[in-house]
Design a protein around this nucleic acid. Structure first.
Lengths: 355, 355
DNA sequence: TTGTATGCGTTATCAG
DNA sequence: CTGATAACGCATACAA
């Protein structure tokens, strides 16, 4: 079975030319006579030759591979989307991507970084790093790094989304529907790191947008309406328990909210489960908005959510990586816009029904 | 920044020994004096040396990389689970995995296969192939292939699940709850390929289990209760519309079912959405069972489902790949057991409530 | 326009 | 126990 693998030299011999000529034809560079080209192409065809990328990588010192460091691809479909977007961009450019999930462990991420270096990946993209130190290790080895979604090191280029504007759109949407008692379920800024340059985190932005949005519409902010915690548990592979607990608590309030903004679809999932369990109808009794647009369309009811532009995130991230590899200029930071996707989980406030 | 990458030769020079000795220490083979070992280790430490896997691959003709060909990682979390399981097994064995999604396209899959060959991956795992011909291309190039979930070629080793037993467990569970009007929503055997050896497909097995299960319990099979189609649309990235349509049709029947078995969590998702839209409570009005255990725990209500043992699937698949690489013996086929995970979407039949 | 020759960093085969 | 040295397959500087 194991047919001996064909080399450039064999193709050259068969074509009656030198390896240099074969290579010139294959790489489409330099001058080649039409005749030589024909002979080479015929020989390639005949032998079913396929270039050995490993050998090429050794020679050119480029692996045409980029590493993608993810938090945990199984725990939030957001990472799946990122992986897919990056892969698409990479493949289109003739690159391959190798994925590593650190699962929140700094030391495991370090291990992943070491394997990336050993593989001589041309660049690494992080979404999100467990520790900025690991990015430093990479850069110390001369391998460029890009951060997606967050920007925890000062030195690295990054692509992220405008979380403030995105979250604000969710609030405005709910207020526009007549809601005045709007609760917030999100990540606690105390648990999540800040972007190095701005000294603000994704969580700061989303929470601030909520508070500012309420204030802008002249709505009181009830401290009980702010439920801060984590999005999901990286260890336990159990779903939106966090969201469930928050919603349980909110609905047990003397004056429960008529709308809940969860800053992650996974959290919203738990909110929906809690509401379902207590027999509430969405959006008749309570409206719910999520963030990310990952599993939103799969939920019942289909979830209104703030969508992150995954394809653009991956593409810009990859472009940055490529620019870094080739020593070209790029902006330090790209900030993308989110878009509000309105589905079936939001509707008029029940409080207005009596009007 | 770009610190020059350290080579074996530099380590050797610093340690005052030959490259052969350094290599012996690193690879832990052959006899080395304690003294040499110390010197080498010190030099490795001092230089922060990291082996170049590309060079090693060229020399050893092993890339320590395996290719994983998936259908479409974004369209069904099942593929995410498989990817994660394979990756975990591979990393534990010092391997890397490169993923490629063919999205249902035979020609794109072929392209992926070609890049796998160019990369000189040591083996490829398919879940699921778009065309057995592409597996042949690989084997023709001397690269072993393994099939996961389905076994479309006769020649390839495979790991799959016992779909018949799994589906049967779902039916038995529902019957045990008093249901007699049980509908089936699944893939149409006409649309899906058969396993080469058994001449039966995943869909044949699941449908047969439904029919046999009904018959075994003395229940009539209403042809209207069998809704066959596709699981999800590979092109449109829209969610369980298929499931929604099936459930809409089922509930519009003069005598609607009290339970629906959907042979894929994504399908069940659509079923749940349909039911939610028409104001039915699950499981009070209708019970629902899924298959796979992918997003089951994220749905409202949490979905009872037939779980596929993803970790085992990935591990056994990788073990087979490794055995093939190393020329060891393995079984031609491994059939794993599913397990029924009972959550909140199944309950007593409403028809029995009057008893 | 084409060919020759060298080296990328490792590993493995020899002698010693 | 250790050290030269020759590949692995490709890309390229330099000659012709």
């Amino acid at each position: 079975m194991a047919r001996k693998t064909v080399t450039l030299m064999e193709v050259a011999r068969l074509a009656g030319v030198s390896t240099a000529t074969v290579n010139r034809v294959l790489r489409q560079q330099g001058y080649i006579s039409a005749e030589s080209r024909q002979k080479v192409l015929a020989a390639v065809e005949a032998t079913n030759y396929r270039p050995n990328i490993v050998a090429r990588g050794l020679r050119t010192q480029r692996s045409y591979t980029i590493g993608l460091m993810l938090t945990a691809i199984t725990v939030n479909p957001f990472f799946v989307g990122v992986a897919h977007a990056v892969e698409a961009a990479a493949i289109a450019a003739g690159y391959r991507v190798v994925i590593f999930n650190h699962g929140g462990s700094e030391s495991y991420e370090r291990y992943g970084v070491e394997t990336f270096i050993a593989q001589r990946v041309d660049a690494v993209m992080f979404c999100t790093t467990a520790s900025p130190d690991n990015i430093a290790v990479l850069e110390d080895a001369g391998i460029p790094a890009i951060e997606l979604e967050r920007s925890l090191t000062g030195s690295t280029r990054s692509v992220r989304v405008d979380n403030y504007v995105g979250a604000r759109a969710a609030i405005d949407h709910l207020v526009g529907l007549g809601h005045r008692q709007i609760a917030f379920v999100g990540g606690d800024p105390a648990f999540y790191p800040r972007d190095a340059a701005r000294q603000r985190s994704v969580e700061d932005d989303r929470l601030a947008a909520y508070r500012d949005g309420m204030a802008a519409h002249g709505l009181a902010i009830d401290k009980h309406y702010e439920r801060l915690g984590i999005y999901y548990d990286l260890n336990a592979e159990i779903s939106g328990v966090e969201g469930q607990q928050h919603a349980d608590a909110l609905m047990a309030l003397p004056r429960p909210p008529t709308a809940i903004f969860a800053t992650c679809d996974i959290l919203a999932t738990g909110v929906l489960q809690s509401l379902y369990r207590m027999g509430k109808r969405v959006p008749r009794d309570v409206s719910v908005v999520g963030f990310d647009d990952t599993i939103a369309a799969y939920l019942a009811p289909e979830l209104t959510t703030v969508a992150q532009p995954l394809a653009a995130l991956g593409r810009h991230g990859f472009d940055m990586a490529l620019a870094a590899i080739e020593g070209r200029e790029t902006p330090e930071e790209i900030v993308l816009e989110t878009s509000l996707v309105i589905r079936n989980s939001t509707g008029p406030s029940p409080k207005n029904a009596t009007v």
